[in-house]
């Protein structure tokens, strides 16, 4: 039987999922954006090649990305406790989510920037623009559409990760689906939670894509 408590629980689940996803994506970009820029810029074909910096970032990105999220979640619990004050709960999940998302986001930023036409960069260099100016005024501007598509993908992926937060009592829709569906065989509750997750991903996808198209000046 569906009760009003369940509706309330679902609503809380949606809020927790959104909280985790949005906050982790935000923090993920705070780390991943500079990382991706640094990767693209120090690449041997970048505007300021630096083999050492590139290699270090490259290795970090690969290591973190090869650790399954579930393991990462447990692995960095001490760090989580240091930052949030405890290693369980919704807020605590944001920490491993951020660390899992950052290198992934970094890679996407790197590839978005690498798509920028070399000629435009060269034009800016020929005008005497500094590396910093080129990053801010050329690379990020020209890669804008591609970066926004990346945000959309990142949101979907992080939302998926957040479903595993149940392991540390993180809450959210994934947690509900697991607790009711997997441990208690109440499949209809699981089904509702899954449908809500699907709806959230759809919303992110639609909004993200329409924004990136709207901001793209290349065609019309």
């Amino acid at each position: 039987m569906w009760t009003s408590e369940m509706t309330l629980m679902m609503w809380d689940g949606v809020k927790e999922t959104l909280f985790m996803t949005l906050l982790s994506t935000l923090f993920g970009y705070l780390l991943g954006l500079p990382m991706g820029i640094a990767l693209a810029v120090t690449d041997k074909n970048g505007i300021k090649p630096n083999a050492v910096v590139y290699k270090v970032l490259d290795v970090i990105a690969n290591i973190v990305r090869s650790i399954p999220f579930l393991i990462l979640l447990i692995l960095i619990m001490p760090l989580t406790k240091m930052i949030v004050g405890r290693s369980y709960g919704t807020a605590a999940t944001v920490v491993p989510l951020t660390f899992a998302a950052a290198p992934f986001i970094g890679r996407m930023i790197e590839s978005s920037i690498n798509e920028v036409d070399r000629g435009v960069i060269e034009a800016a260099q020929s005008m005497g623009a500094s590396t910093m100016t080129i990053i801010i005024r050329v690379l990020l501007v020209e890669a804008r559409t591609s970066i926004l598509v990346g945000v959309t993908i990142a949101l979907g992926t992080i939302l998926g990760y957040s479903a595993m937060a149940g392991i540390v009592g993180g809450g959210g829709l994934g947690d509900i689906a697991m607790r009711y569906g997997y441990y208690r065989y109440e499949s209809e509750i699981m089904l509702v939670a899954v449908v809500l997750l699907v709806v959230l991903v759809q919303i992110f996808q639609t909004v993200g894509m329409s924004m990136s198209v709207k901001l793209d000046r290349r065609k019309r």
């Binding site: 435009v120 034009a123 020209e142 793209d216 000046r217 290349r218």
Partner: peptide
């Protein structure tokens, strides 16, 4: 330049 190299955005 040959391909103009303007900022497309």
């Amino acid at each position: 330049f040959q391909h103009f190299n303007l900022l497309m955005q």
